[in-house]
């Protein structure tokens, strides 16, 4: 049963979400772009091995030969939420073109992520991995969420994107498709 405190904080949380999202489309926040930064030196993707929603272990080492999109995110991170729908549209556009998407959730449990995914339109069908202790952040050099890496079939990093993006933009779809050929 809801008590005064829970109502109070529900109202507060709603107001915060309004701060974070209401102005995300208006005066407050910049629009998401579709730029990916090419990595011009040869940098091998760090290790990444976590459970997915089905509690199966997924290891990036086993995905050699494929283009892998690694996206670090959390449900409470406003730009992560903003870009999630576009990530699914990207997935639908490239899933048959040798491209895999791994969205690595930082520090949250499966129930929290599952509830959130039900609210995303379109609902994500790509792999969700769970880094409960945020151990991948240092290994990958992530300093803020979201951060995304595009890994070439040879296991080296092709592109990075710090901050939210519109991942279903034709430029990004084209870049990933070319990498997967």
């Amino acid at each position: 049963m809801l008590n005064r405190h829970s109502i109070h904080y529900f109202v507060g949380l709603t107001a915060l979400l309004l701060v974070l999202f209401n102005n995300s489309h208006g005066e407050g926040l910049p629009p998401l772009t579709h730029n990916l930064t090419p990595v011009n030196t040869t940098i091998k993707a760090p290790e990444l091995r976590f459970q997915n929603m089905d509690e199966e272990m997924v290891d990036i080492k086993d995905l050699k030969g494929k283009v892998v999109v690694v996206n670090f995110w959390a449900t409470w991170c406003p730009p992560c939420r903003r870009e999630m729908g576009s990530m699914e549209r990207l997935y639908q556009a490239v899933k048959d073109k040798n491209v895999v998407i791994l969205a690595v959730n930082i520090g949250e449990d499966m129930d929290t992520v599952f509830s959130f995914l039900g609210m995303v339109e379109p609902t994500p069908n790509f792999q969700m991995l769970f880094d409960y202790e945020a151990v991948s952040m240092n290994k990958w050099g992530v300093k803020g969420l979201p951060t995304t890496y595009i890994i070439k079939p040879d296991g080296t990093i092709a592109y990075t994107a710090v901050g939210g993006r519109e991942f279903d933009h034709p430029n990004i779809i084209q870049k990933l498709t070319q990498l997967g050929l």
Binding site: N35, T37, A74, P78, P79, G144, L145, V162
Partner: peptide, 19 residues
């Protein structure tokens, strides 16, 4: 920790950012 604005960061031109 990860909801905080980063203590240190690098952004490439063309839209790298944090909130």
């Amino acid at each position: 920790r990860w909801a905080q604005f980063p203590p240190e960061q690098e952004y490439k031109p063309g839209g790298d950012w944090n909130q």
